[in-house]
Design a protein around this nucleic acid. Structure first.
Lengths: 255, 255
DNA sequence: AAGTGGTCTAGACCACTGC
DNA sequence: CAGTGGTCTAGACCACTTA
């Protein structure tokens, strides 16, 4: 009899009970990161529910970031080894000249490698033009890149720089040399001095989830960093999208 | 005939097509924030699919934070009016003496009101004790509070302070007076000078989603702020959980 | 009472994985 | 091949909202 085999428990829905039970097993260590969770069929028979109800429990945990699914293999407990990234230290001037890529100082075991597109010239998107205080006719240098860990994309970044500042400079090259963009801006007499990072978190669009190789149920961090030189002129806006499950952001400041 | 009415489109699953179509309508403004999306029945008949498939499309959009559902009423397009919170400005000393609650400077139209529990004495949780560099037998003052906007909880915060520092001080009172905890710590000769905020983003547990009145498909920001006095002694650890859909975090720093 | 979302069943077929 | 996740159907009943 459809719709009746749940004998009106007056309790939580069955799929939530099953999900909570699995969650508890993970919390108390009975189910460890990387291990396979019970299959749909196993849950179906163990709890006397239909396949869809068993599946519903697994999917809801996946959408909460607890499990990940691999087609044909099973549901597995997700593990987290986030990359710790300190914005202050990362931008500290000492590192710029050292030939260190900005991001490689953040990852300890597995280096994060950038894959950069060819820089292009373009009109600034409306939002970027506004934060850069540019006229809508001003052109910018656009540098797009993807950062990989173990060959997997974990972050995308798009930098916008005023074209009149960086035209015919190494900033227009794919490889900007030791110290990266910021060192080149310093060479040009516009060393970045003041920074603002604006951080949002939300669920990714399907496109974004595809670009970053993200599991369902994991949010993104959307960070927009604005860099100004000593005179207050905005010399770069960097629009970053991060797989939130792979990062811990750290900010230091005084009084 | 079950499983056959999708005539092997060789394309995306039906529920994904329907979801993408709705998403597009929202993006191009045909469906505006706050408006009701088509109901399950409407989608079912319009696309010639079963109710579960139509529902699947709506639920997947809800779990991506695009829609919210109201039982008995429908699915509605979510709108965002995030609270902008600048950690640097918020903590700037000038504000402490002014009788300004720390958070009220962040909200413009609708004030964010804290609801504080009675402070208690307790053993520090393991993780907190470690970051506070306390022995496992040291006791701490625990201050829990919930912040409301329009009566809706949007953030929880739990502060831990070394008990030997704040025992028999106004910090142990519910109302700490003008300037809040930090002003009282200054009175005690331990003015917070250096801060670190550590920010993660993830999906909430069901319990967390209940405490904050969160819609499905919205992540939380988990922020742990550590405050040290001039000598480097850690005088507070503040463990915050925020409904990510309601906040934009802002961090300023120089070179 | 009618319309809506929320849960559930008992099947079905497909695609992917690994033996 | 069997086992797994992924999609789908055509119903059902429930709880909630509005009128």
């Amino acid at each position: 009899m459809p719709g009746e085999s749940t004998p009106n428990d007056r309790e939580r829905p069955a799929f939530q009970r099953i999900a909570a039970e699995l969650r508890a097993k993970i919390l108390d260590g009975a189910l460890r990161p990387g291990e396979r969770a019970p299959s749909e069929m196993e849950l179906k028979e163990h709890h006397n529910v239909s396949k869809m109800t068993a599946r519903n429990a697994l999917v809801s945990l996946r959408d909460q970031g607890v499990l990940e699914s691999r087609h044909g293999k099973g549901f597995f407990v997700r593990s987290f080894e986030p990359i710790r990234r300190n914005a202050t230290r990362r931008l500290s001037k000492e590192l710029w000249g050292g030939g260190q890529s900005m991001w490689s100082v953040d990852v300890h075991d597995r280096p994060m490698e950038p894959v950069a597109d060819e820089p292009i010239e373009a009109l600034a998107p409306a939002g970027i033009a506004r934060t850069m205080r540019l006229a809508s006719t001003d052109r910018v240098c656009v540098r797009s890149r993807v950062y990989l860990v173990d060959g997997v994309p974990v972050m995308t970044a798009v930098s916008y720089l005023p074209l009149d500042l960086v035209a015919n400079s190494p900033v227009m090259q794919v490889d900007t040399g030791p110290g990266g963009i910021y060192a080149r801006l310093a060479d040009l007499g516009h060393e970045p001095k003041r920074f603002r990072e604006e951080l949002r978190s939300r669920m990714p669009t399907p496109e974004e989830a595809g670009q970053l190789a993200m599991g369902a149920g994991t949010p993104v961090m959307h960070i927009v960093r604005t860099a100004a030189d000593a005179t207050g002129r905005i010399v770069e806006v960097n629009d970053m999208l991060l797989d939130a499950s792979r990062f811990v952001m750290e900010y230091d400041f005084t009084d």
